[in-house]
Nucleic acid binder design. Sequence first.
DNA 1: CCTCTCTGTGTACACGTGTTCAGAGCGCCA
DNA 2: TGGCGCTCTGAACACGTGTACACAGAGAGG
Lengths: 344, 344
Amino acid sequence: MSKSRPNCTSLDIARAAGTSRATVSRVLNGTNGHISISEETRARVLRVAAEMGYAPNAAARQLRMRRAQAIGLILPPSRYRRPGQPGTFGLAQFLGGIIDAGDSTEYNIMLAPGTSPERAVQMLHGKQVDGLLVIHPLETDPYIRGLLAAGAPVVSMCQMPAEVPVSWVDFDNVGGARAAVLHLAQRGHRRIAFICGMAGTMVSSLRIRGYREALDLAGISFQEDLVVSAPEPTRTPQGAAALRQLLRLPEPPTAVFCYRDQLAFGVLLAAREAGLRVPQDLAVVGFDDDPASAHQDPPLTTVRADFFGAGREAAMLLIDLIEERTLGPASKLLPTELIVRDST
Amino acid sequence: MSKSRPNCTSLDIARAAGTSRATVSRVLNGTNGHISISEETRARVLRVAAEMGYAPNAAARQLRMRRAQAIGLILPPSRYRRPGQPGTFGLAQFLGGIIDAGDSTEYNIMLAPGTSPERAVQMLHGKQVDGLLVIHPLETDPYIRGLLAAGAPVVSMCQMPAEVPVSWVDFDNVGGARAAVLHLAQRGHRRIAFICGMAGTMVSSLRIRGYREALDLAGISFQEDLVVSAPEPTRTPQGAAALRQLLRLPEPPTAVFCYRDQLAFGVLLAAREAGLRVPQDLAVVGFDDDPASAHQDPPLTTVRADFFGAGREAAMLLIDLIEERTLGPASKLLPTELIVRDST
DNA sequence: CCTCTCTGTGTACACGTGTTCAGAGCGCCA
DNA sequence: TGGCGCTCTGAACACGTGTACACAGAGAGG
């Protein structure tokens, strides 16, 4: 293993190799233009650089190139940042995909500080990052528009309405929900409830659209009181409470489609509590394919969403926008897959 | 809202304010030395800077100050980066705490690329980050030692053996495990099994130490066959398999302490499958206080670990080392808390 | 022999900032 | 009026890099 010299500039390499700094730079970056370098000089420079453990100063390079070679990642503050608030398994997967994209493109990933768009815009203006990746913006409009106003590439990891001129990558929320509800209809269910998330969020309204499309296709009429909204955070206890509310109806549902697996876990608990057998008395479907879903009692039927792939695709799209291989707002919808287990 | 000018240098501010660049820098950074600035000039500069939405160029500042004002975060590749591999809830909490620390100290957080220490060392030498935070190093020795060889501040988020000269922050694994097992002994259990993680990892060996200490204190003799190792990944199915193995013993245990909550979930499933009532026939304790633990059937007794606080403390320690407020390897052990629920 | 192309190298500048140092203006005292 | 201290400002440099440009040498064609 070569001795690593912490402070070692390209001038040091040039001196040690008996050449000039310009030649060192040309050899290491390969950007000769139309200029060529003798094979002997190139080999000598490479050898010396490796021996001295040379690493180019990132700040100097960024300053010269007017590019940070980095993307900023804006995590959803409300869900992941408060102490005691659990994160969904999706975050780790998103991160994995994003880092994977960064690895293969030589881009660095920087976590954006603060909870308001101002700090993120500062990062852009300060040329600390070349673009921003926003995971699940909650207060969609003002936040995203604030970022777009800075005039830099932005990709949202959540499908956005067409009138917001932003690029995004997401799974097919509508199609996934439709498939889940159609599956229930095919098993003979006519009273299918939907436990949705906070009203007004994009994901929630997309999944409810899929729910309604499936009802239409199956010839089932939409009933207001079969749709209940679980308050944030949409987790296990909220799912249990939502089912209890549904069971108080004069004609309770025989099947429940949940906006998220975590809600479905609560539904399973509350069903057992109420003496209902799953799936005989009540069928349950979730959304996400949380790894815990396969280990519920009974194992949960759900819609699989590829978080890792979405993270990777979103980062790739952002980098394409930065390097202007893609122009203007672009979007990508990833397919989802219905995973049938024993809860239906 | 002020019109944000994307490219706007301190020279622009100086010209607009009718002064020089040096004065602008002095006003904005406050570092006058013994020099003072007239109140009128200061106000004019601040107003112009705000109007033009000035953000200092990060690269230029870093180059001048010889400091990146950023820390690198090394995520455990094996657990979080592969597609399909779920992350533990702890990661989101860790990140929350780390970002929180970054917010309050004006440090940025950069995700380290690659899976080998080389790329991380490059980040250090290239002055892209001032220090590294390592989450759960798996192949402890070579990895950490490789980072330390670079001569930069490093903090591990996992307790390390004393002979490795690295700083670390962790919860009290020994104390948490001891408390959990003592709790079982106090409830009258004498045959207490331990389902541990992969042999050789630091966390696993610390928790088994706590287990043995508790047995000693309770006057129970250690029995080899009551300790089973769940293979990686230590999740629900592995927990179920471990319990099945324990139940095949001539004298099966009446209580099980699990290295992680995820394993305990599997134990609960397998117990129900075997017709055992929890806690009457089998008592179960986990470790982590995963948010799902409270919603198991029955709710799981477990050891709460403050991941958010650990992330925050680790980042703070790293920043103290960078700014040389703390010298040499330092370490911090955070307390754990036994949460008694219905599984014991 | 002169000019012209081609190859390989080095010099010099720009990127935007923080900070040192010299100096301008001004009031005060001898 | 000259000298001196005090307050505030601006010119100049360094940080380490990528690259446009000039240049030296050599070979070839007129």
